[in-house]
Simulated assay, not measured.
Amino acid sequence: MAAVMMLVVCGAVAGLSTVPAAVAAFSVVTSTAASWSVVENFGVGRLFVWGDNSSGQLGLGDRTERRSPTQAGSSTTWTRIAVGRAHTCARQSTGTLWCSGSNTYGQLGLGNTTDTINYTQAGVATTWSRVVAGENHTCATWNNGTLRCWGRNNAGQLGLGDTANRTSPVQVGSDNGWVGPTAGAEHTCGVRRQRTLWCWGSNAFGQLGLGDTTNRTSPVQVGTNTTWSAVAAGSAHNCAIRKDRTLWCWGSNASGQLGLGDTTNRTTPVQVGTNTTWASVTGGAAHTCAIRSNGVLWCWGSNASGQLGLGDTTNRTTPVQVGTATTWASVTGGAAHTCAVGAAQTVWCWGNNATGQLGQGNTTNRTSPVQVPGVTGRPLATGPTASSVLLIG
């Protein structure tokens, strides 16, 4: 399994850092806490998909939901994945980018607004590196560190200085230092190589972290801190990890998804507790989950469908440990469900299961983690507005 020099993704999180011991089987260096050295150990693999497929976003040639993992095509060279509300994109080891599903706003990057139910190559570039998907927009970096975005742009989430939709990838500014973009419903954030944090798009809940609720159509630096290592977007909130492994959250907090002990929105980053061992973080629609360096998983926020994995449906406004396992390697948050990679690259999901997104062969919600049978692998991805799941294994 060849190592690849590029940034590592743990669920929705993006950035650069060292890896906790519990994550060693997942990657040599992960994307979330203390160092700028990056060496991935993902290799390549088959693409497995399940859950909502109402727009053909699973790329299986139809619009039928899948309640169990199903292989998409026959390729064994997939390396990166991203899941939007009704579209998905995936990168192959050749550096090509492929997308499927809803294309109402051009979010597939095909130069048109025609939906597709099979993975279709976006352009001819072979330099794609990291891809993320918002509700109806997509952003991705090239190997040279430049960032491109496309799709819906009603709130300026493409970062192009206007609110016009784009049906093909367009470069965001001229900076070539992007190492970790992340996409919320209608906003985008990213860490640059200098460890600065930038956000743009919708800001109705202060999710841009700029101290106000005014939308931005171009990237704006969040404060002056230069120690950001990773950022993960929820639907309308963000959480980020600094070099010292502290965790900071801001934006919408109606369900306690900021982990601050209340339900008050924040328009600038606020530290979550005093812990200094956070290793990765992911944002769902209105919940957040994060892994500490000892491999322990914590979740908080909305829990109406059991997406916190705590055995009940009660919201939490501060981080609560999920079970007793110390072997969690990565976690990814969906609209109302959560999935994670555990020991030996086993896959676990919990929460809402209305479209089979838990991969259990049924539509029964689960309030505690349940193993997805028949698959192992990494990376694993869903999205804060999504009820679909993708896995490379």
Score class of each variant (00 low, 15 high):
Gln321Cys: 10
Leu310Ala: 08
Gly306Tyr: 00
Gly301Leu: 04
Thr332Ser: 15
Cys289Lys: 05
Asn303Cys: 03
Cys299Trp: 03
Arg292Gln: 15
Asn315Leu: 09
Ser293Leu: 10
Ala329Cys: 05
Pro319Tyr: 01
Ala304Thr: 11
Ala325His: 12
Asn303Gln: 02
Thr318Ser: 15
Gly323Phe: 12
Thr314Arg: 11
Thr314Asp: 09
Asn294Leu: 07
Asp312Ala: 00
Trp298Ile: 01
Asn303Val: 03
Ala286Glu: 14
Ser302Tyr: 04
Trp298Tyr: 08
Thr314Leu: 14
Val296Ser: 15
Thr317His: 06
Ser330Tyr: 09
Gly284Thr: 05
Cys299Ile: 01
Thr327His: 10
Val296Ala: 15
Thr288Cys: 08
Val281Ser: 05
Ser293Trp: 10
Ala286His: 05
Gly295Ala: 07
Asn294Thr: 14
His287Tyr: 03
Asn294Gln: 14
Cys289Ile: 05
Ala329Ile: 01
Leu308Ala: 03
Ser302Arg: 11
Ala329Asp: 06
Asn294Glu: 15
Asn303Pro: 02
Thr324Val: 15
Ala325Glu: 14
Thr288Phe: 04
Trp328His: 00
Gly306Met: 04
Thr317Lys: 10
Asn294His: 11
Thr327Phe: 05
Asp312Phe: 01
Gly309Thr: 02
Gly295Arg: 10
Asn303Ile: 00
Leu308Cys: 05
Ala285Val: 00
Val322Met: 11
Ala304Arg: 09
Pro319Val: 11
Gly283Ser: 07
Thr318Phe: 00
Pro319Cys: 14
Gly295Gln: 12
Trp300Ile: 06
Val320Ala: 15
Gly306Trp: 00
Gly323Lys: 12
Ser305Tyr: 06
Gly311Glu: 03
Ser302Phe: 04
Ala290Pro: 12
Leu308Asn: 01
Ala285Thr: 08
Arg292Val: 05
Leu310Arg: 04
Ser293Gln: 12
Thr317Phe: 07
Val331Pro: 06
Gly295Thr: 06
Thr288Gly: 10
Trp300Arg: 08
Thr327Trp: 11
Gly333Glu: 13
Val281Tyr: 12
Thr324Arg: 13
Gly301Ile: 02
Thr332Phe: 10
Gln321Leu: 11
Thr332Ala: 13
Asp312Pro: 02
Ala290Val: 09
Gly311Phe: 01
Trp300Glu: 11
Thr317Asp: 08
Val281Gly: 03
Ala325Trp: 11
Asp312Lys: 02
Thr317Ala: 13
Thr282Asp: 15
Gly311Trp: 01
Val322Arg: 07
Pro319Glu: 14
Val296Asp: 14
Asn315Gln: 12
Gly301Cys: 08
Thr327Gln: 11
Val281His: 08
Arg316Gly: 00
Arg316Val: 00
Leu310Gly: 07
Gly284Glu: 14
Val281Gln: 10
Trp300Val: 08
Asn315Trp: 08
Ser305Met: 07
Trp298Met: 06
Cys299Ala: 06
Val320Pro: 10
Thr313Trp: 04
Thr324Glu: 12
Ser330Phe: 08
Ser302Asp: 13
Leu308Ile: 01
Gly301Glu: 09
Gly311Tyr: 01
Ile291Ser: 04
Thr318Ile: 13
Gly333Tyr: 04
Gly309Ala: 08
Ser302Val: 02
His287Met: 07
Thr314Gln: 11
Ser330Pro: 03
Leu297Met: 14
Thr313His: 00
Thr282Arg: 11
Ile291Cys: 05
Gly333Arg: 04
Val320Glu: 13
Asp312Arg: 01
Gly311Leu: 06
Gln307Asn: 08
Trp300Thr: 07
Ala285Asp: 14
Trp300Pro: 10
Thr332Ile: 07
Thr317Met: 07
Leu297Ala: 04
